[in-house]
Design a protein around this nucleic acid. Structure first.
Lengths: 305, 305
DNA sequence: CTGTTAGCGCTTTCAA
DNA sequence: TTGAAAGCGCTAACAG
C-alpha cells in the first residue's frame, strides 16, 4: 500500500504539500495540486486513518453502546446513527452493555484513545458516572445537558386522547418498570383522563413481566391498551389473540415509544423520529448544548399502514 | 493522559521495558516488572490503541457490514458478533449497505487501515469483488472459502417433515426472491414431499412481496405455511389473522431461517445458532479454512416457548 | 506557496 | 535483562 512518501516522490513535492492537497488544500499552487492528484490516482493512494489519528489525536470513531435490555429497539437507532455518522465522516464502534459494570468497562476500554466520544442508548439501569465525552439517549439518568430524553408524559397524554377519540374510554396501561418513565407516563395518563372527566381505575394499570396477565385476571373490561414500547406491543398482540381478544376491534393496542421507521409499527404508536434523534445526538457530540437541545423530545402519532 | 514515557520515567526503566512488561512480558526482571506495574497503577496508564495500531500495523478492528434488506435480523448477528469479538479483544466497526455500490464504498473506506478485516452479512444483491480480508455470512455469493452459508435445502426438508408429523399435509411455501436460496428450499421441499409420497402442487408455492396474497387468492387449501425468515413470518401472521385464519390451529406458520435467540421466534422455525455462527466467523477471520468450516451450516428445529 | 523538521505514542530490532 | 534508537504514516509549526 502506497504511503505519503511515495506520493510526494512521484509528484516531486514534499510530504507537507501532499498533506495540504489532501486536506482542504488551500494555498497550494494549482500545478502542484494537479501533480499530487495525479500521483494519488496512479498509486491508488489512500491516507492511513490510523496515522492521521495518531497525529491529530482524534480518530473520528464514535462508540455506540446499546443496553441489551431493549436490544430489539437498537436496530433502528443503529441504522439512523450510522447514517448520520457517516454523513459526518465518522465511524461507529459498536458495543452492548448489560449493566452499569459492563458499561463502565466498555467506556474506559474504548475511551483509551480509540473513540473520540460515546453514545449510550436505552439503559434502564442506574448509570455510573460517565466522562464528559459521553452522551445518552433514552437512558435512566438525571437530566444532564448531555442527554436526550423522551417526553413520556406527552406521549401518554397524546395516546389517551387518540384512543378516546376513537370512542374507547376504558384504557388499560402497562407501565415500564423504570420508576422515572412510569411516573411520567402515569402523569400524562391522568392528565388525559381528567380532561375527559373520566375516573381513574387503578385496576387498569399494571407493570412488570406479568402485567398483562394480571390485567386480564382482573376481569375489568378495557378496549384500549397502552404499552411502553414496540416489543411489549408485539407481545401483547400475541397474548390478546390467545385470549380470544381481537385487535384492534376488541382492544386497541397502542405503543408509547416506537423507534421503528414510520408505518413500521403494527399498532398505533407515539414514534420518535430516528433521523431527528440522530441529528440531535450529533449536535450534542459537537458540543452544542443550546436550549432546544436539552428539552425532552416529543414523539409523533404514527398509525400503522 | 499519561503516556509510556511518563511510566518509564516513574519506573526508572526504558520505554522498551515498559512495553515488554505490558505485552507478554517475558525476559524482564521481576524487580523491573513490579516497578512498571506500580507506575502504571499510580499513573492510571492505559496504552494508546492508536499508537499501538500504527506501530503494529493492525488495529484489532473488524468491520461488520449489514445489508439493510434484512435489517431486522441484524440485531441478533450484531449482538453475537460483538460478544465474540470482544472475547477476542477486537472491536466492531458497524456499517450498513443497501447495494453493491455502497458495500464497495464501505469496504474500501474502512479498509484504509482502519479495519483489519470485514464481515458482510445478509446481502441479497450480487456481491462485488471483495478483498481477501472480507468474509460473508448468509450472502449471495459463489461458494467461497471465506463464506458461511446456510443449508436451506436441509431447512426446508426438516420443516416439511416437522409439519407433516403434525398431520399437516398441505404445505404452502413462500420462497425468497433470491434464486439461489429459492432453488435450495424448493429442493428440500420436493425431497420431503417425495418421501411422504405427496404430490407437488405448484399453486402452493409463491414468492415476492405479493406471495401470500397470491397464495390466498388461489383458494387452494393449506394448513401449513413455510416462510423464509422471521420477518416474513411476522408479516404472514398478521395477514393470516386479517383473513380470519387462526394460527397455528388453522395454519401453522414455519420460519425457515430464524436468527433469533432460541425460543425467540413466535413460530416454529429452523434456527441458526448465533453463537456458533459468530465463532465460525472468528475462525474464518483467523484464516482457518478447514473442511468443516466450508460446509453450509445446518440450523436446528426451534419451537416457540 | 513550499520544504524541513519535530513530533503523535508505541513496538521492535540491535547492541550492550 | 536492558536501553538507545529507528521506525509506523501522517500533521503542523516554522522558516524561507
Amino acid at each position: 500500500m502506497a504511503n505519503i512518501n511515495d506520493v510526494s516522490r512521484l509528484a516531486k513535492v514534499s510530504k507537507a504539500t501532499v498533506s495540504r492537497v489532501l486536506s482542504g488544500s488551500r494555498g497550494v499552487k494549482e500545478e502542484s495540486r494537479l501533480a499530487v492528484m495525479q500521483a494519488v490516482e496512479t498509486l491508488q493512494y489512500k491516507p492511513s486513518v490510523i496515522a492521521q489519528s495518531l497525529s491529530t489525536q482524534s480518530t473520528g470513531c464514535i462508540g455506540v453502546i446499546c443496553a441489551t435490555e431493549n436490544i430489539n429497539q437498537s436496530t433502528g437507532y443503529l441504522h439512523a446513527l450510522e447514517k448520520e455518522l457517516r454523513l459526518n465522516q465518522k465511524y461507529l464502534l459498536l458495543r452492548f452493555a448489560t449493566d452499569a459494570a459492563s458499561l463502565t468497562h466498555s467506556v474506559d476500554e474504548i475511551g483509551r484513545g480509540l473513540c473520540d466520544a460515546m453514545i449510550v442508548i436505552g439503559a434502564r439501569f442506574a448509570l455510573p458516572k460517565l466522562p464528559e465525552n459521553v452522551i445518552t439517549i433514552d437512558c435512566l439518568d438525571a437530566d444532564s445537558e448531555r442527554s436526550i430524553h423522551f417526553d413520556r408524559s406527552f406521549a401518554a397524554e397524546t395516546a389517551c386522547q387518540y384512543v378516546l377519540k376513537q370512542g374507547r374510554r376504558q384504557i388499560a396501561l402497562i407501565n415500564p418498570e423504570s420508576q422515572e418513565a412510569a411516573g411520567q407516563i402515569l402523569q400524562g395518563y391522568h392528565l388525559a383522563l381528567e380532561k375527559f372527566l373520566l375516573p381513574y381505575d387503578r385496576r387498569l394499570v399494571h407493570s412488570g413481566a406479568q402485567a398483562l396477565t394480571q390485567l386480564l385476571a382482573q376481569n375489568v373490561p378495557f378496549n384500549a391498551l397502552l404499552v411502553p414500547d414496540d416489543a411489549t406491543a408485539q407481545d401483547a398482540l400475541r397474548q390478546l389473540m390467545q385470549h380470544g381478544r381481537s385487535v384492534p376491534e376488541n382492544v386497541m393496542v397502542f405503543s408509547l415509544g416506537s423507534t421503528l421507521p414510520p408505518g413500521g409499527s403494527a399498532v398505533p404508536a407515539i414514534a420518535y423520529p430516528l433521523e431527528t434523534l440522530a441529528q440531535r445526538a450529533m449536535a450534542l457530540l459537537a458540543g452544542q448544548f443550546s436550549a432546544g437541545l436539552s428539552a425532552p423530545v416529543r414523539g409523533q402519532l404514527s398509525l400503522p399502514s
